[in-house]
């Protein structure tokens, strides 16, 4: 852990770009007249970068996530992943929503292992009993890191909201996705649980080092977790402000009380209010 801290505080090495947003936009027909939701956004996201989008509700944050995932490809402009335009759902990404959407007929462990039944090469591997045992152990370890070791055999309705969300994060990460998409994953949790989850998510992410896009309206959450925070304005929205966060990692919840942390948050807040 000490080692990764020294790496992070060292000057940043330019990493290759994984995602390019090229003049993306979104418009709806409302009562026959077109209404622009997202105006024009262009930006690049580097491999292994943790990026947050913050902004007022209704500014199209979630739409951005749906465009990146390919669940609803960008109608105007294009998003490219490693140079390829996204036109259909990307394979092998991890996704977690505000609602944990665990499957009630599966216990926690089976819920977490769902992606392994769908994504190659795991799909082939888990047909083999001994290979499956290895993956099961890996899933149990992942559950242990989020404090769900004793809940592997419980069903979703036997878990608290925070536990379900942790299981949902494990499911998003089990297949080691290149890109992790988080849509207000902690929005429904109480303040204390939420801060615990930030620390936990950071640990998971530092372990995996996947590219992560977080949608949130919690500025402290964005600053705590991200390398880069993009502020979106009201409709029709575009990026009105960008902050590069350079806070030490791994950080504990003590960081939330530090001056430098609160300075960044205050700076962001001013820019949201100005728009």
């Amino acid at each position: 852990m000490v080692q990764s801290e020294t790496v992070d505080s060292a000057p940043k090495i330019e990493k290759p770009v994984i995602l390019e947003f090229d003049h993306i936009g979104l418009a709806y027909q409302v009562d026959g007249s077109p209404r622009r939701i997202i105006d024009d956004i262009s930006l690049n996201i580097a491999e292994g970068e943790f990026v947050s989008f913050v902004g007022p509700s209704g500014c199209g944050k979630t739409s951005i996530l749906r465009m990146v995932s390919g669940l609803s490809p960008a109608p105007l402009g294009e998003i490219r992943v490693r140079g390829n335009k996204i036109t259909q759902p990307l394979k092998n990404i991890g996704i977690a929503f505000q609602n944990p959407v665990l499957m009630p007929w599966r216990n926690t462990l089976d819920n977490v292992m769902l992606p392994l039944e769908v994504v190659e090469p795991y799909k082939q591997e888990i047909r083999n009993a001994s290979r499956k045992a290895i993956h099961t152990r890996a899933a149990e370890e992942l559950l242990a890191t989020v404090g769900l070791k004793d809940f592997a055999k419980q069903y979703p309705w036997q878990l608290s909201g925070g536990m379900r969300q942790r299981a949902s994060l494990c499911r998003a990460l089990i297949h080691k996705p290149e890109i992790l998409l988080l849509d207000e994953p902690f929005g429904a949790l109480d303040a204390f649980t939420r801060e615990e989850m930030w620390v936990m998510l950071q640990e998971l992410w530092m372990h995996n080092r996947c590219t992560c896009i977080l949608i949130t309206h919690d500025l402290r959450e964005a600053v705590f977790l991200s390398d880069t925070v993009y502020v979106m304005g009201p409709r029709p929205s575009s990026i009105v402000y960008k902050v590069d966060v350079n806070l030490p990692r791994p950080s504990t919840s003590d960081l939330l009380l530090s001056d430098e942390f609160n300075h960044v948050v205050a700076d962001l807040r001013r820019h949201i209010h100005r728009n």
């Binding site: 390919g70 394979k91 990404i93 996704i95 929503f97 609602n99 499957m103 769908v118 994504v119 297949h175």
Partner: peptide, 17 residues
């Protein structure tokens, strides 16, 4: 739940899966 289907689609699941 549509989000449950989204989770599956984002893993590249087929309609049958």
């Amino acid at each position: 739940e549509p989000e449950m289907k989204d989770v599956m689609r984002s893993l590249g699941a087929s309609q049958f899966e």
